[in-house]
Design a binder for these strands. Structure first.
Lengths: 141, 141
DNA sequence: TTGCTTGTCGACAAACGTTGTTGTTAGTAT
DNA sequence: ATACTAACAACAACGTTTGTCGACAAGCAA
């Protein structure tokens, strides 16, 4: 994701307005590698801006996604997660116990659909999800 | 997934009762490689058993999952999908336009977490999702 | 069969994450 | 400063999934 200033310029350029609400969300996402849910972003933003609505957070996240500045992940945890890291190609480790997501900055080779199965299908994107348990959760069995 | 008869025996063995509703669901899932949603299973089952409730379908699907006879997939399409193919290790092709899911019966080599990222994490399962467009959807742009 | 026990059914409603609606506020360009 | 209009907060609705519960039916023993 670009810097808050760059996002501000980019939003203006697209005819999108830069409001205090949006700037707060920019700031929260900047450098956040915890893959927060929209709800948790909302909670954090609301502590400094109590009247903020959840809808606004969703809207801003969708705008950022449309501009390619964040990626919205659905890893089957019940709610989507916001990943501001769109610069580096990466995959994800998901702890099925606590739900935490970690980036896996590795590019796998050979990850393509064999020709005999590729027929009738155009691949845009490959996503690899490693499910398991982080040690924090393994310890507390 | 095993045959309807085998499932019947397996359910009884586990102390689960075999009802006409469950048998109808067994029959619908047997040989179905369309990765139906619970809702679509419900619709089809209801055409031959109008009083069936959606809850019963969910319950039966979860029972089948607990016995390891189906896999419940959440590919971020908004609803979970039932995959009766648990015999062959496989991944999935997902059409982001129509939502159709296709099996990809390929085993990728080299799909493991590099040592330096594996620390603090125990991997149980790897899932690869190829997103794109099936030709049926590419044609109708 | 009969009766008992226990798990299941189906109707209803609620939980959850997400999106639509609406009148009002406020960012932006002129 | 003004006008235009997108974005806001508040609220309600949506779709998917789960909880509750009385009535019922499957399975078992005799």
């Amino acid at each position: 994701m670009k810097s808050c200033d760059a996002l501000t310029a980019m939003f203006r350029e697209q005819g999108l307005r830069v409001t205090p609400q949006r700037q707060a969300i920019f700031r929260l996402l900047d450098g956040d590698d915890s893959h927060p849910t929209v709800e948790s972003l909302f909670d954090r933003a609301r502590s400094e801006m109590p009247t903020l609505s959840l809808k606004t957070v969703y809207q801003t996240v969708h705008d950022l996604e449309a501009l390619g500045e964040v990626r919205v992940l659905d890893l089957g945890t019940g709610s989507v997660r916001v990943d501001p890291n769109v610069e580096d190609d990466h995959h994800h480790l998901l702890c099925t116990t606590c739900g935490r997501v970690r980036d896996l900055p590795v590019e796998f080779t050979g990850l393509h659909v064999p020709i005999r199965h590729r027929r009738d299908f155009t691949v845009d994107d490959v996503q690899v999800i490693f499910r398991g348990r982080c040690d924090h959760c393994s310890d507390r069995i």
